[in-house]
Structures are given as C-alpha cells and as structure tokens.
Design a protein around this nucleic acid. Structure first.
Lengths: 159, 159
DNA sequence: TCTTGATTGTTGCATTTGAAACTATTATCA
DNA sequence: TGATAATAGTTTCAAATGCAACAATCAAGA
C-alpha cells in the first residue's frame, strides 16, 4: 500500500465536506437573508422546532455541535426573541430550551423553504438514491441514533 | 405541505454536515497532531499531492475552497517549506504551486493514514454502499466534474 | 492604442470558531 | 457527612474564517 493509492476523489471526508459545503451554503443564503441567522443558530432552531423543547446538551448530541457554539447560538436566538429558557427543577445546571411563538413562526417559514430545497435536490439526484445515502451517512454519526426523547428531562414539548 | 413535514433527519444539508464533521474531525486529529496542519492546509496539500502542480484557482475549483482560504494555506505551507511557487510565463497573475520534496514526504505519510482511515470506514459501512454514496454526492458539486488537467497551465506536474 | 471589464491572488476588518479554563451544580463513594 | 470526580453551560483568547476592497495582469473591442 502506497500513498499514491490515496484517492482524494473517493476519500469520504473530502467528498462529504464538499457536498456539505455546497448544500449548506446554498440553503444558508435563505435564512441569512431573511432572518440574519448564522448556520449554528439555524441548526439550533431546527432541532428545537422539529423535536420540541430540549436541553443544550441534547442539542449538542443530536446536532453534532460543540457546546460553545450552541451556547452562543442560544444566546443570540434569545436576544432575537425566538427562544426562551426555563430552568429545570430536576437539575439546576441545565435549562429547558424551546422556541417562542415568534421563533416558531420563523421555523415554520424556514421549514417550508427546507422542504422546497429538499424536493429540488431529490428531483435532481433521485429519491431512492438519496434515501440510501442518508441511511448510510447516519450510521457515521454515533450519537445520532437515540432519537426518541428518551433521556429528555424537558416534559413540556413545544411542538 | 406544512413545515411540520420538514424532517431534519433526512434533510441532506444536515446529514451531510454531521457526517462531514464527524469524519473530518476524526481525521484532522492525525495531521494536526503530527504536523500542526490546519484543515485548509491539508486540503491544499492533498490536492497538490494527489494531482500534481496546479494553480491556486485550480485548487479552489477542485476543492470547493474559497480563494482567501487557499491563499493563506499556501502561504503557511510555503513557510513550513512544504510548498514552492513558480511564476507562470503564460499568465503572470498566477503561480504554479507544487509540493517540495519535504512536502511530498508529509503527504506520503498522511496519504497512508488516509488510506487506513478510508479502509476502516469502508469496513464498517460496506464498500459498495460507500461507492454508491460517493458517486451520488459528487454530482452535488458542479465544478468538480472536469477532473482532467484540461485547462491546467502547469506543465511540470510534481507527481 | 486606449479604455473598459474580467480575472488572479492578497490584505483589512469584523465575525466566527474552538480548545481550555472557569463557575455552578450534581453524582459517587469512603 | 465530606471529599473527589463528573457534568452543564459560559467565558476567554487566540486562531480561523469570509466578505469586501484592493493591486496587478490579462482580454476584448472601439
């Protein structure tokens, strides 16, 4: 085995980075222009909007995000009035995060845009093939599996 | 169609970002610890090591990188003695970039590490499935197709 | 030729990022 | 109980990032 065998074009980290960059950048224009949101802020909002109230650590786990990025995104979303915190009685270190009514309106709008974008991608690449690829890629993210709100101490789901 | 139909877990930008982050982060530890390289630096080096001498713009096109990131990565690699520039006579705006001997040694080492990493991933996910996913994802990156050194004004390929 | 416009690569500047340090709280165990 | 370790989240600080502006060169057409 020699380094000349190293094929950049089939090296998964490379291909994934390019694909992620391309798709994310295209969709980012929408939420950046409409709401001035950062990629991290959108990711936090999307998790809360889709899965309901949860803790910052839970967002980290689900979204493969770093806690510092989540912390700042939460702060920014709170400033904009789209997110509210509620202290947890079961553990006073954590807080229960959820979208406000205004935040939900923003998510609803962007969710629709996301559906459009997704539809366009699938039309181009083929629905079944996309599904297969996604199923494969999700196996790469170890902590992503436990989807149910199993260990979620936030009861009052905002969705 | 309502925003509640928006499924984060099958939204391609999300899945791709998570997968890219997971795989890149894991592999980044290697070149960061061994050679103190940035992700951008590694990407530039990988393109030069794999495809031989080329221009900065060509690296941008191939790697889906921004020119400012490439510019700074080139500068850093040059400082470390792993990259050399040679002015092009056909166009004095561009420079022909290639790895030095020392740079090639670094690439050889990291290329082997990349092969190991790739092998491990494919063992885990299945070779054929990975190939299919990669073929699909490459169709997402429009400028990535023209692979041959068609319009490459750098003749003296370093590889 | 001269002018206008496009392209290559760099730099300035403000924002974003991530690793490590930190506070506050909870868990473990002698 | 009390001591130690682990965890949630924030902050700090240096590095990385990206957009815009820029200088240098090339291309196209009057």
């Amino acid at each position: 085995m020699q380094s000349r065998d190293f094929d950049l074009e089939t090296f998964l980290p490379f291909v994934l980075n390019q694909a992620a960059e391309t798709t994310s950048h295209a969709f980012a224009e929408i939420y950046q222009k409409r709401y001035g949101m950062t990629r991290g802020q959108w990711r936090v909002m999307a998790n809360l909007g889709r899965f309901g109230a949860m803790t910052a650590t839970e967002i980290c786990r689900r979204g493969q995000l770093e806690k510092t990025k989540v912390s700042r995104a939460v702060h920014a979303l709170e400033q904009k009035g789209w997110l509210s915190r509620k202290s947890l009685e079961s553990d006073r270190r954590s807080e229960c995060l959820s979208l406000t009514e205004a935040g939900r309106a923003v998510f609803d709008d962007l969710g629709l845009a996301g559906l459009d974008y997704d539809r366009a991608l699938r039309d181009r690449l083929g629905d079944a093939a996309v599904d297969e690829a996604i199923a494969l890629l999700r196996r790469l993210c170890p902590d992503n599996q436990g989807d149910g709100p199993a260990s979620n101490p936030c009861q009052d789901a905002g969705s």
